[in-house]
Amino acid sequence: MPPKVKLTLPQFTHAIVYAGGLLISNPVIADNEPRLGDPVTATELSRLSITVLPDGRGLPDGSGNALDGAQIYQTHCIACHGADGQNGINDRLSGGVGTLVSTKPIRTIGSYWPYATSLFDYVRRAMPYNAPGSLNNNELYAVTAYLLYTNKIIGDTDEMNATSLPAVAMPNRNGFDWPE
C-alpha cells in the first residue's frame, strides 16, 4: 500500500474578500487542488516509456548476439571505450573481476553491475554518447550481448532478447546490500 497522500500546504478556507469596499463575488476556495493535468494517450506513452525494470518489463521486441554486436561496437563505441571495452578514453566496460576487495577496485559490467537489464536500458537511453537513441532494437540487443560476451558472461552466439536478457546471471548479482 502506498502511504497516504499528505498535502503539505495549508488549505484555504471559504472567505468572502472585500477590496476597496466592493464585495468580490469569486470566493477563495477551500479545495486548493486545481486538477489541471491533461490526459496522455497510450501511443504517446509508448513512445516515451523507455524504462526497463530488472525483471525485464519494458524490454522491446527484437534480438541480437555478440557476433553481430562486435560490428556495432566497432562502429559506434570503440572510439571512446577501447577494444573489448578496455583502455578507452572513457569508462572501462570489461574485466576487473576480483578487484572489488583491492585498493584499486575496477567496477565494470563484469565485475560490478548486478543486472543485465540495466545495461540494455542505459545504452538505449544514453549511448553512444554523441547520438543517444540512434541504435535500433536489434542493434541494442546485439551490442548488449557483445558487452556481456566480452565480460565472459554469455557465449558469442547466445541470442539476447526480452526473455533471455533478464535471465542472464550477472557475476556480482548478489554483491549488494539494498535496504529493506
Binding site: 524504462t51 526497463v52 525494470l53 530488472p54 567496477r107 559490467i109 560490478y112 553491475w113 548486478p114 543486472y115 537489464t117 540495466s118 545495461l119 536500458d121 542505459y122 544514453a126 549488494f176
Partner: peptide, 8 residues
C-alpha cells in the same frame, strides 16, 4: 529501475 545511476 535499478538504473545505471543506482547500480554501477
Amino acid at each position: 529501475a535499478m538504473s545505471r545511476e543506482e547500480t554501477s
